[in-house]
Design a protein around this nucleic acid. Sequence first.
DNA 1: GCCTCTATGTTTACAGCGTTCACTTTAGGC
DNA 2: GCCTAAAGTGAACGCTGTAAACATAGAGGC
Lengths: 198, 198
Amino acid sequence: MVTVSTSNEAYHHGSLREALVAAGMEALDGLDGKEVSLRELARKVGVSPTAVYRHFPDKQALVEALASEGLAMLGAAQAEAATKVGGGALGFAETGRAYVRFALAHPALFRLMYTQGNPVEHDVSGDPAGRLLQKMTRELSSNIEDADRLALQAWSIAHGIAMLMLDGRIPADDALIDRLLNTENLFRVQGRSSEESP
Amino acid sequence: MVTVSTSNEAYHHGSLREALVAAGMEALDGLDGKEVSLRELARKVGVSPTAVYRHFPDKQALVEALASEGLAMLGAAQAEAATKVGGGALGFAETGRAYVRFALAHPALFRLMYTQGNPVEHDVSGDPAGRLLQKMTRELSSNIEDADRLALQAWSIAHGIAMLMLDGRIPADDALIDRLLNTENLFRVQGRSSEESP
DNA sequence: GCCTCTATGTTTACAGCGTTCACTTTAGGC
DNA sequence: GCCTAAAGTGAACGCTGTAAACATAGAGGC
């Protein structure tokens, strides 16, 4: 039973949707492997399973609501991390760390955000974290093309680290995050690879 | 109904396990979002659902069998791609491309390999793709520490690109794969970031 | 050549899931 | 104060993974 913020049992008053999302976010903290169940959330909120369908067309829609809530949280965490060090290139690096740390702090939510969430299909407008990333890289780069490339690369690295750590492929170690996010060494290898090309 | 390789209906003869895995691999091609069902595989093979439990303790074990089959396929694809260009640094770069291409070619299998598969928990011995990666990076680097760092970074980038493309966050475009895997530009930004640090 | 034992299958059953349909309750506008 | 539309309920369907009891087939020992 989740105690909804204001009036305790004031359903039939429009708060069910928010209560479900709140219960969902709460349920997502603590279970990583298993996925959240619609009936379980209904139970937690004290309502019959079918009541959910008055507020969401199906489970997918409920899950997407959780996903976009998560994206907002992530965006906020990144923005805070960036401004705390004064923005700029240093702030940009900090958003990467914040990204991975967020994933480790909320494994189930993070997974859900990217596997279930509305795909945003190459449009960044509905994704606060994506918007911030685009803004920062465009400030750092001289032209938009470079900026967008950098944005996708940075995103890929951070996302890869996060996922591999969540999946237990790489130790979920804070120092390792820093070591991997620092990509100075990659230049050498890339250069060598170019030398060998005909 | 999947037609198992040798004798058509020679169950009760030890081929059920292989038939199930084959049916699983077949089922995984063609469905991305949904996950494979134990009962469905049993149906495809023409056997009752509970027969599966004579060969796998539970569904997870069956899924892990599929995962390790997938890891073997990936390792083979990468090795082939690397040798085709003559190995070396160029071959190393090629394994990255092969990794992402494999993910795009077998989305459901790839997801399953990394989210469900036996975590290998930081031990690379049961993972052919991981072994190859370790071998190549150690050949490319002067010391083991640099090599392992490079390995994890390269893995992270490729994995991030693959996942973001599978999840529809980034266009699944072949040219984009190359653009993102080429990380020469990252050096500049990283350098700037260092300048600003106190 | 028969008998038995074990590996491999089947049947039935249970609890949980998402979802549909028909129904009831409730709150608010006239 | 009624009436209507919104919101929640209950029963049911087909699906899932899994457990327990039972059936059968084939190999090995005699």
